[in-house]
Design a binder for these strands. Structure first.
Lengths: 131, 131
DNA sequence: CGGTATCCCTAAGGATACTG
DNA sequence: CAGTATCCTTAGGGATACCG
């Protein structure tokens, strides 16, 4: 974001038109990556601070080792998460958010807060709907 | 939300402790519902205004009839979307957001905006990651 | 137009075992 | 501890056809 050259009105606007609705847009892929079942919870957890692998696994209730590993790789690939290997015995690996990841996590937190406080409303709606 | 009785400090705080990290919490289920692949895009679309079924299908690039129908039912069940049948010939069905759905859509919009404007950063991260 | 029903296939994802 | 590898099951989801 900050490493883009200052906008030149005459230059082609390559990515200023990115659209999350478009099937092949990178923004939609990134959106799906960060909102996927486990990634969103991982980002929320890392929004609380850095975590080691197994601590993260305990925090994100229900995630398997496989899915956690896979999710972390995707998020690292998208530039949301930083992976740091500490050369200790036994080995430690710590995960934390990049600046971009932190901005994403903030917005996910805002959404989670809303839903956590809307549980009674959602429950009422469900009962009304199911009859 | 507004149909809850005014908070009584002595009353049991049943849902004030809802936690999106807990496997069996309604807030986590609702969170997964609204962040699921198609639901999030449907909510974003309806954040722009009401839509009829096929218009919505065109707006949400790539969704099948089946998934759109299914997604709309889930969102209606959770109290996010209102379905209105107009008795005209041919029949029209219009979908719009409830107040809760609108609040959710706002937050999803905020997340989508961020990712749309972060495309260059995500792309750069991906290239760095893949080498 | 606005769906539902059926069929089918792929990929998400859990369990378990094993490695650096 | 922090994973990868393998196996296997389930469910997400596309295509098609049909109905009110």
């Amino acid at each position: 974001m900050t490493d883009r050259p200052s906008p030149d009105p005459a230059a082609p606007t390559q990515e200023l038109v990115s659209d999350v609705f478009a099937r092949d847009c990178t923004s939609r892929a990134a959106f799906e990556d960060v909102t996927s079942k486990w990634a969103s919870l991982v980002l929320l957890a890392l929004g609380e601070g850095r975590y080691r692998f197994n601590a993260l696994r305990r925090r994100v209730d229900g995630v398997s080792e496989r899915m956690l590993s896979q999710t972390l790789q995707t998020l690292e690939g998208d530039g949301m998460v930083t992976r740091e290997v500490l050369s200790t015995i036994p080995p430690r690996v710590e995960y934390s958010l990049t600046p971009l990841g932190a901005r994403v996590a903030e917005r996910l937190r805002s959404l989670a807060d809303l839903l956590e406080s809307s549980v009674p409303e959602v429950r009422a709606a469900r009962e009304r709907y199911r009859g």
